[in-house]
Amino acid sequence: MIATRTKLTLSLTVVAVVLGFMISVQYKQQASARVTPVPMARDTDEQRMVTQLDALKQANAQAQKELADITSKLSVYEKQSAGSDGSLKQLQQVLQDERILAGLTAVTGPGVSVTLMDGVAKGGDVSQYLTHDWDIRSVINELFTAGAEAVSINGYRVVATSGVFCTGPVVRVNDHRIGAPFVIQAIGDPQTLKSALTQQGGVLDALRQRGVNVSDPQIQQVIKMPPFTAGPTAGGDTSGDGEG
């Protein structure tokens, strides 16, 4: 009698321990699921999307790099094939010029650089101290008119199809969002470009009069400019960014 009773108690105890363990584990699980069901789901969703975005950005950057690589190879082949034929050489030169104008190739050369910054508001209309999209446009137009072969804003190449638009606090160039300060670089004859910008009553003078913080155009012997990129790329990897 005692033996069976002991056995009963012992086995019941063993089973009770296991049962209690299982119940508490399950309870804990359920409780945690009750407390944070939605944030957890959203979190994982967000993380998934962030990972996806990163992967896409990386793939994009990779593709851009490949494109630049192929383009440079192509230009090498063209140089080789030009050979001795004079007319062909001339055609190649025209093609090269058009390419540069279209922003298909990275270019290097002498030019000028000017920086536009929002001025410090001293009363009155605040918006007149800000650098607007049309200010950038007028500077770019002035540079192209003066014979600039290639122009970039903060490292983003400006071509015939480029747009410079205001989107709230930033400016969109080729669908890249960029903010002040705007470093505008132009490749061309440095003296001509500089004088075009600095002429009396010119664009920069007009901007300065309004209170916008405009630097003096700097002549730079070597400016490197990346090819035109249409969409947002990862972390400005293709941008020459600033003082090239």
Binding site: L12, G20, S24
Partner: peptide, 16 residues
């Protein structure tokens, strides 16, 4: 003696 299973249950819950 009869309380041993109950103690076991509590122990199991505690472990869990």
């Amino acid at each position: 003696m009869i309380w041993l299973p109950v103690l076991g249950l509590i122990l199991g819950v505690g472990i869990g």
